[in-house]
Nucleic acid binder design. Structure first.
Length: 819
RNA sequence: GCCCAGGUGGCGGAAUCGGCAGACGCGAUGGACUCAAAAUCCAUUGGUGGUUAACACCGUGAGAGUUCAAGUCUCUCCCUGGGCACCA
């Protein structure tokens, strides 16, 4: 007998799996396709993070389970290496992103191989590969041509450290999602995608999705739909009016005053009528200079100035209302103006109190009547804003558009010659599809400049070009697109990554998509997971696909922490998976990670705890390595089994450890439990069950040599295979002598008949307290149960001399005497 | 402030329907093996009282409630983690 040499064995099978293509489904003609996808990593950090490994292992177990259930599982892997995260890392360590990506790529793929996942390596892809981003650019053009991309000057998020603009989703608590620096507001002209066109669809379709609940809630909150009304308030003695959005038109009689956001355009238009213009202007100036961070900190402490000279008229009761400007009203939401009802709205109340405004209290009207009487209309408002897609950075796909002065004129004269996007953005012309990819040039000084332009703007050779439409001199867009565009469609590419003619071919899309199971981090609830849904809905509208949701099922894994605290470089408690693989092997690390806690809840990694799994895996080896397959005689399952072990009472010593169990029953129980646990991603309890089953196998090793025992061992190995793919393969092939991989075997099925118990422990309670238990046959009736229970000493002494008021009998469970 | 998830031994965590709380693992203690240690194996391990017993009582963040019976259901409150945050 040899000790378990995991290093040799793991490497051997990893090689063999790749050579034999065990995990490569036939993408063209698989019969039962199952797309098991996990969020691909961005190789920006020093190496594969144990958090990545945690996520991948959890997803891989599910994939292996599905494969053994007979599906043609496709589990691809790739690198999301284009974009600001990878570029920031390159800047940090002082290498060029082009060189860094090559290094990271090698390192990451090496690490990803070591964890022993069932990846379809032939289909790996990298988002910075020109053959990939060619289609990212193609996608951009499709969105542009169909009127879903537009250029607009507006106040946007600017990260002074990353020196680029950011989408709203990429700002967390006023800070840059990437570098945690405070984000500023800048008025800039940028490219946007009209994700708001899909606000309703993105919200309504959530309902049908089998996704983690939290993610659905987060998306729903982010989209932030509210139903209400738009109502106009005329401004006295002018032709202007103030339009407000309100969810409570029924409160219109309680309107006490109006409030405008500092950016509201009426303030500029009616400048001449404002009596205290100086005061108002200075307030506006101050408010505009406040960062989001400041605004947030000051929230609650209301500021504002009355706009003297302007009065609004309540369209229902004709009351004359003062107009205020205050930054608690946001320009980006609704109409940037509100009707203030201090008697009902907490914020308005606070404001009114601070500025001593007399509060009007009136009865509520009927919702619809109020809208009608005010001359308003029903309206739905959203918090969701359009996706700001341009980045003033180097390491990303150049936006495939060109600005042409001639076309700027022509498009107005002959709009029929231009696409929707070109008409809506005069002068901007999409490059021709056959000239894609627009390759990212190698620029020595790739660092962001902070002038509101990408480093590409300093490369004349890059941006000077001819207009693809009219052939005149033109200028390329020099910004690159957001990295979340790269990752918004990668699952289309995996299934057809060498396709030169389209971003994915129709037949394969039909076969494999939408994705059956997607696993990833919850932090992408409103980033990646929202963007991908938008892109899929757009592709559906363009007629490229016939479904409108990318992922049928999504599960978020929990957060992995270390010894009770979050892992971070500054704390120095980041787990390096390589070290553990080196010391214990991939199987042990995989199984330990999954044993910590329910996969969807995360877990606490403790160095001491891994020993338990190390022991378990070694016990698996020791027990099964000795299995004798040559003597194949059958045994009678009923053979009494003499085992010394723990039991509930001393009298049980010498009896089977689990009094009425036998090995076969336990095998079938375990099959049932492990199967249902894996389905629910409760890997921790599945592993517990496997530990129990192993104890049974150990305790019944005197049965070794019988064909039954071999069968039980086979079942055990299959159940363990998704968790510990290497050791199970070794035992399956070498010890049990099988010719083909265990990972292609059929998942065992349990036989319900064999699990059925004829007896059960009847619980006997007196006044709800357990006083005794007794083993009786299932289906025992109330009368018999009562009789048996009353005769037990432990029960009788409590009942003695007492009047039984009531007897509760729960079939096959308990009997409770109430005295 | 709002929304979501959670609070169970020394620790990570179990517990379909309300029905024996603490599965499984770690750690700890005692023992076997060993010259010794490591490894391995066996036993014990929620708390208090009790003779190391039988047994009794207490025990799932706190307090109330519903129920024959509550970790599980209801209400109030406290704490932790996450998300959103002046969204009209």
């Amino acid at each position: 007998m040899e000790d378990y040499n995991f290093k040799k064995i793991e490497a051997k099978w990893q090689r063999e799996w790749q050579d034999k293509g065990v995990y490569e489904p036939d993408l063209e003609s698989a019969e039962d396709p199952y797309y098991n996808l996990m969020m691909f990593p961005y190789p920006s950090a020093e190496g594969l993070h144990v958090g990545n490994m945690y996520a991948f292992t959890g997803a891989d177990i599910y994939g292996r389970f599905k494969r053994m259930q007979g599906f043609d599982v496709f589990e691809p892997i790739g690198l999301d290496g284009f974009g600001i995260h990878s570029e920031n890392y390159a800047i940090k360590i002082g290498t060029h992103p082009v060189d860094q990506s090559k290094k990271s790529e090698k390192n990451f793929y090496k690490q990803l191989e070591m964890i022993g996942n069932g990846f379809a390596w032939n289909e790996k892809l990298e988002t910075y590969d020109p053959e990939y981003y060619k289609w990212t650019q193609w996608l951009f053009i499709k969105l542009f041509e169909n009127g879903l991309a537009y250029r607009k000057k507006s106040p946007v998020n600017w990260c002074p450290s990353c020196k680029t603009v950011l989408a709203d989703e990429q700002v967390e608590n006023g800070k840059c999602e990437r570098c945690s620096n405070e984000v500023e507001r800048k008025n800039l002209e940028q490219w946007f995608f009209k994700i708001t066109n899909y606000a309703d669809a993105l919200l309504d379709d959530l309902e049908e999705l089998d996704w983690s609940k939290n993610v659905k809630i987060a998306q729903s909150n982010w989209i932030g739909r509210s139903e209400g009304a738009l109502i106009n308030f005329n401004i006295k003695d002018t032709d202007e009016s103030l339009e407000v959005f309100t969810t409570r038109p029924d409160t219109i009689n309680g309107v006490t005053y109006m409030v405008l956001a500092p950016e509201h355009e009426v303030l500029e238009k009616l400048e001449g009528k404002i009596n205290n213009l100086k005061e108002v202007s200075s307030y506006i100036e101050k408010a505009k200079n406040k960062s989001d961070q400041q605004r947030r900190e000051e929230a609650g402490e209301k500021t504002g100035v009355e706009v003297k000279g302007l009065k609004a008229i309540n369209p229902v009761n004709k009351k004359e209302l003062p107009v205020w400007v205050a930054d608690y009203v946001l320009s980006g939401y609704g109409t940037g103006a509100i009707m203030a009802v201090p008697s009902l709205d907490e914020r308005d109340g606070e404001f009114a109190e601070k500025f001593n405004l007399p509060i009007i209290e009136e009865e509520l009207m009927d919702f619809n009547e109020a809208i009608e009487k005010s001359g308003g209309e029903k309206h739905t408002n959203y918090k969701l804003r359009d996706w700001l897609i341009s980045r003033q950075r180097y390491w990303g796909p150049p936006i495939p558009l060109v600005f042409c002065k001639k076309c700027f004129e022509n498009v107005k004269k002959n709009p029929e010659n231009y696409s929707k996007g070109e008409v809506e953005n005069p002068g901007w012309v999409a490059v021709k599809e056959d000239s894609l990819p627009i390759k990212l040039p190698y620029i020595e000084d790739f660092r962001p400049k902070g002038k509101g332009q990408s480093p590409l703007a300093s490369d004349e050779k890059f941006y000077k070009t001819k207009c693809p439409k009219c052939g005149e001199n033109a200028t390329r867009e020099t910004d690159v697109s957001d990295t979340f565009l790269d990752s918004s469609w990668y699952y289309y590419r995996y299934i057809d990554k060498d396709n030169k003619d389209s971003f994915s071919n129709e037949k394969r899309v039909k076969k494999w998509l939408p994705v059956d199971m997607y696993i990833g981090g919850e932090e992408h609830s409103v980033l990646h997971l929202l963007y991908t849904r938008f892109i899929t809905k757009a592709l559906n509208d363009f007629g490229f696909i016939d479904f409108d949701e990318p992922f049928k099922k999504f599960r978020a894994h929990g957060l992995l922490i270390k010894e009770g605290t979050k892992m971070s470089k500054s704390k120095g408690n980041v787990i390096n998976p390589d070290e553990y693989i080196e010391k214990f092997g991939a199987d042990v690390l995989r199984t330990y990670l999954m044993f910590l806690a329910p996969f969807e809840e995360g877990g606490d990694f403790r160095d001491a705890g891994i020993m338990g799994i190390d022991r378990f895996i070694n016990r698996v080896w020791k027990t099964i390595e000795k299995v004798n397959i040559n003597n194949g005689s059958d045994i009678a399952i009923e053979t009494p089994i003499k085992v010394v072990g723990k039991g509930p009472n001393y009298e049980d010593i010498g009896k089977p450890r689990y009094a009425d169990e036998n090995l076969e029953k336990q095998v079938h129980k375990s099959i049932k439990k492990v199967t249902s646990d894996i389905k629910k991603l409760k890997y921790n309890t599945a592993i517990s069950e496997l530990m129990i089953l192993l104890s049974y196998l150990e305790e019944h090793k005197h049965l070794n040599g019988t064909s039954n025992y071999k069968e039980f061992v086979e079942s055990f190995l299959k159940l363990l295979a998704p968790f510990a793919p290497h050791i199970t393969e070794e035992l399956w092939r070498n010890t049990l002598g099988n010719e083909t991989s265990i990972h292609k075997e059929k998942w065992p099925k349990h036989n319900e008949e064999l699990i059925k118990e004829s007896d059960f422990e009847l619980i006997i309670q007196v006044n709800g307290k357990v006083r005794d238990t007794v083993k009786v046959s299932k289906g025992i009736n109330r009368k018999d149960a009562e009789k048996i229970a009353k005769e037990l000493d432990g029960v009788a002494k409590y009942l003695d001399g007492n009047n039984i008021k009531k007897v509760i009998f729960v079939e096959d469970k308990l009997i409770n005497f109430v005295i």
